[in-house]
Amino acid sequence: MDFALDTFRWLTDPTNHSGPNGIPVRLWEHVQVSFLALFLATLLALPIGLLIGHTGRGEFFAVSVANIGRALPSFGILGIVFPLTLGVLPGFGYYPTLIALFLLAIPPILTNAYVGVQNVDRETVEAARGMGMSGRQVLAKLEVPLAAPLIVAGLRTSAVAVVATATLGAVAAGPGLGRFIIDGFVTRNLAKAAGGAVLVAVLAILTELAFGLLERSLTPRTSSQGRRRTPRAGGIATPETA
């Protein structure tokens, strides 16, 4: 109980709410690096995933990326990127963290975009082509809207993983809320470490909820079941896809 109380005290202590090491600054760093990594990963992975799904070419590549992405430990990515970029890029821990998060975010976005487009009913696509839609129009007017819930589910998986892993960036002197955890841990200030942990946990859950809401708003309503759920992090694998 003392521990919980200490943690609460640390979280509510006004001195922790300002200054260059205050909660708002660290929170902003955390959100900023996470968002940028997610944005850059989306910029790269989404078009590739859509294209693979649309053309049906490069499926092996997409599946491989998914499998490697699942097997590669996020901590490992950080561990490799950090020593390699040290001295190459300015700053100490920011860019290694960004690069690691960027790499981490790619597989779910790419895979879900590919699977989402591929799952669009082939007969619907054929009907659209039959009505004279070009390939580009089929993609833009049919495949992307229909795949939207799965695409967002991929973004959700990536976003939650990125927010969580950004915490680990602090081990490599990175920015964000992880700083509280690592610094608290190292200085044996458990209340501080736990305060950071609580903040990170809340941020991750909020991220999950926010993307969950976005995903719901994009999922078409079916008459009988209300809104259909789409797979998400820790999703269900069919024996064929796994």
């Binding site: 699942r70 590669l72 901590f75 561990g79 490799i80």
Partner: peptide, 29 residues
């Protein structure tokens, strides 16, 4: 194997991190 990753991070020694990460992936596969 995370032991090696942490060591690579702490000592700025990529070899250790790579050994840890690669073996971890191999183990998963």
């Amino acid at each position: 194997l995370g032991f090696f990753i942490l060591r690579g991070l702490r000592d700025f020694f990529p070899t250790a991190s790579i050994v840890g990460a690669v073996l971890s992936v191999a183990l998963a596969v």
